[in-house]
């Protein structure tokens, strides 16, 4: 058949192409980097963490020697909202912007789209978080904070910041895929990640306090603190709980994608 009308000059123009997970990941990466707002959000995440470390160092009278390495990551709890927004926007913008139809026409099996978004958002926020933590600790070391005293802790803080922020972003992405509406998704994620831990403290029931330790941010943040025997969860145990939340959100997301119309 001639392909004159569609301008396909040769039969190799679209040749042996078919959909693969790797190609969908690449498509999602193209989507991510071609929206300026995503790059700005990543930059602000980095600047918030490094910047707050700088402020703390500048504000301490003795130039920072009294600060512990953990203190330098105070910005993580401020910045953590941004990776969550990245994850939610990555999926909800498909419906808000009307691109969902084009996306799922190209990938009618649907799940690779979610996998692609998880890969892109997860890796980008991991790298941004780890780089920011490394920057914050390097600044601290230069100012006299004894970062090298516990190398294992320093490594855990750097990788842990990346893992913590990356996993929160993936959890939020899963919530976004279930809720679909942008504002609804952000409110749901804020509820799980920030309001629930505070609300639990208000309830004067010991069992509630204990369970609150298993909320995503409460458990995951243990990765960014020294090992504390008074807390039931170890730092990595806490991270495993956060990971389980993210896995549950993704399972719900896969089911939603499968059964709901686009």
């Amino acid at each position: 058949m001639s392909a004159a009308a569609t301008g396909a000059a040769t039969s190799t123009a679209t040749g042996a192409s078919s959909v693969s997970v790797a190609r969908v990941v690449r498509a999602e990466w193209t989507k991510f980097r071609t929206l300026p707002s995503n790059l700005i959000t990543v930059a602000i995440t980095f600047v918030t963490i490094v910047g707050l470390a700088g402020v703390l160092l500048a504000a301490s009278d003795d130039g920072g020697t009294a600060l512990a390495p953990v203190d330098l990551l105070a910005g993580v709890s401020w910045a953590q909202f941004l990776p969550a927004v990245l994850g939610i926007v990555a999926i909800c913008s498909e419906w808000a912007a009307g691109t969902s139809r084009v996306t799922f026409l190209a990938v009618p099996t649907r799940w690779p789209v979610l996998a692609g978004k998880v890969a892109v958002v997860g890796v980008v926020t991991f790298v941004a978080g780890a780089a920011a933590a490394a920057g914050a600790l390097a600044m601290g070391a230069a100012a006299g904070v004894d970062v090298g005293a516990d190398p294992a802790l320093a490594i855990r803080l750097v990788s842990g910041t990346g893992l913590y922020l990356g996993t929160i972003a993936v959890f939020a992405l899963g919530v976004g895929a279930i809720v679909r509406n942008l504002v609804g998704s952000i409110l749901t994620a804020v509820g799980f990640l920030w309001i629930a831990p505070f609300a639990a403290v208000m309830i004067p029931v010991p069992e509630v306090h204990e369970l609150a330790g298993y909320l995503p941010t409460s458990a995951g943040a243990l990765l960014l603190t020294p090992d504390n025997p008074a807390v039931e969860l170890t730092p990595w145990g806490g991270y495993a709980v956060l990971l389980a939340w993210a896995a549950a959100a993704l399972a719900g997301a896969l089911l939603t994608l499968r059964v709901r119309d686009v």
Partner: peptide
């Protein structure tokens, strides 16, 4: 926009 769609099937930039 076209590149994101083309990437899912590995269509060349020329297309």
């Amino acid at each position: 926009h076209l590149r994101t769609v083309a990437a899912t099937h590995g269509f060349p930039a020329k297309r």
